[in-house]
Simulated scan of single mutants.
Amino acid sequence: MTQPSAKAIPADSIDAVQQALGAEHAAIWTYGLVSAFLPNSFNNALNEGATTHRARRDTIERSLNASDVAPKTAEVAYVPPQPVTDQASSLAVLAIAESDAAVAWRSVLEHTDDADLRKTALEALTSSAVRGTRWRKAGGQSPAATEMPGQPS
């Protein structure tokens, strides 16, 4: 199966897109980490989240390559913002990973006028906000939804 051709990223948006790519790498890693602590009832949601982040990562990497820019590579490992030891801490860390991705994609929106890139960033911000809300709700956090998704804390 061939991948669709990627559209180059405007030069003034590269840094923000690289930061978003870093957030995608971290989210993918986090989904792998927490899968060891969550029961099978979370498998569908975990797979959906990880698959979405992988697809977004792949799209960003193709676009950066089309821009003659080397994509930021994933770290070997990431340090979660809090220890992950059980279901509750796993759900909290997933919500944080989604929030971090939303913040990164909001930054892309703030750093581009390119219509296609803005559409991609808005879709990414929205899907991360929705998943983050689901993870906070599953973890019993209140409020489950944030007022301004993607707003840095």
Rank of each mutant, 00 (worst) to 15 (best):
residue 1 M to R: 12
residue 4 P to E: 10
residue 4 P to Q: 13
residue 5 S to Y: 15
residue 6 A to D: 07
residue 6 A to K: 06
residue 8 A to G: 07
residue 8 A to I: 05
residue 8 A to N: 03
residue 11 A to P: 02
residue 12 D to L: 00
residue 13 S to Y: 05
residue 14 I to E: 12
residue 15 D to L: 03
residue 15 D to G: 04
residue 18 Q to S: 10
residue 19 Q to T: 14
residue 23 A to P: 01
residue 24 E to I: 10
residue 25 H to K: 04
residue 25 H to E: 03
residue 26 A to L: 06
residue 28 I to G: 10
residue 28 I to M: 10
residue 28 I to Q: 12
residue 28 I to T: 10
residue 30 T to I: 09
residue 31 Y to R: 08
residue 31 Y to A: 08
residue 31 Y to S: 14
residue 32 G to Y: 04
residue 33 L to S: 11
residue 36 A to E: 13
residue 36 A to C: 07
residue 38 L to K: 06
residue 39 P to F: 13
residue 42 F to M: 15
residue 43 N to K: 14
residue 45 A to D: 15
residue 45 A to H: 12
residue 46 L to K: 14
residue 47 N to S: 15
residue 47 N to P: 08
residue 47 N to W: 01
residue 49 G to I: 03
residue 50 A to P: 03
residue 50 A to G: 07
residue 51 T to R: 14
residue 51 T to D: 15
residue 51 T to M: 11
residue 52 T to I: 03
residue 53 H to D: 11
residue 53 H to F: 05
residue 53 H to C: 07
residue 54 R to W: 12
residue 54 R to L: 06
residue 56 R to V: 14
residue 58 D to N: 14
residue 59 T to Y: 09
residue 59 T to P: 02
residue 59 T to M: 12
residue 60 I to E: 06
residue 63 S to E: 14
residue 65 N to E: 07
residue 65 N to G: 03
residue 67 S to Q: 11
residue 67 S to R: 04
residue 70 A to H: 05
residue 71 P to C: 13
residue 72 K to S: 15
residue 72 K to W: 03
residue 73 T to H: 13
residue 74 A to N: 11
residue 75 E to W: 02
residue 76 V to W: 05
residue 79 V to T: 15
residue 80 P to D: 01
residue 81 P to E: 09
residue 82 Q to V: 08
residue 86 D to Y: 01
residue 87 Q to S: 13
residue 87 Q to R: 13
residue 87 Q to C: 04
residue 87 Q to P: 04
residue 89 S to N: 08
residue 90 S to T: 05
residue 90 S to P: 06
residue 91 L to S: 02
residue 92 A to D: 10
residue 93 V to C: 07
residue 93 V to S: 13
residue 93 V to R: 07
residue 94 L to P: 00
residue 95 A to M: 06
residue 95 A to T: 05
residue 95 A to R: 03
residue 96 I to N: 02
residue 97 A to E: 06
residue 100 D to V: 01
residue 101 A to Y: 00
residue 102 A to R: 00
residue 103 V to D: 01
residue 103 V to T: 01
residue 104 A to T: 02
residue 104 A to K: 01
residue 105 W to N: 09
residue 105 W to M: 03
residue 105 W to Q: 07
residue 107 S to E: 12
residue 107 S to H: 11
residue 109 L to K: 07
residue 113 D to L: 08
residue 113 D to F: 12
residue 117 L to R: 01
residue 117 L to P: 02
residue 118 R to Q: 15
residue 118 R to C: 11
residue 119 K to P: 00
residue 120 T to M: 15
residue 120 T to F: 12
residue 122 L to F: 08
residue 123 E to N: 06
residue 124 A to H: 08
residue 125 L to I: 06
residue 125 L to Y: 14
residue 127 S to P: 00
residue 127 S to N: 10
residue 128 S to T: 09
residue 128 S to F: 03
residue 129 A to E: 08
residue 129 A to C: 04
residue 131 R to F: 02
residue 132 G to S: 08
residue 133 T to Q: 15
residue 133 T to Y: 04
residue 133 T to L: 07
residue 136 R to W: 06
residue 137 K to M: 02
residue 137 K to F: 00
residue 137 K to E: 10
residue 138 A to K: 08
residue 139 G to N: 11
residue 141 Q to T: 05
residue 142 S to G: 04
residue 144 A to S: 15
residue 145 A to M: 13
residue 146 T to Q: 11
residue 150 G to A: 07
residue 150 G to L: 12
residue 152 P to R: 01
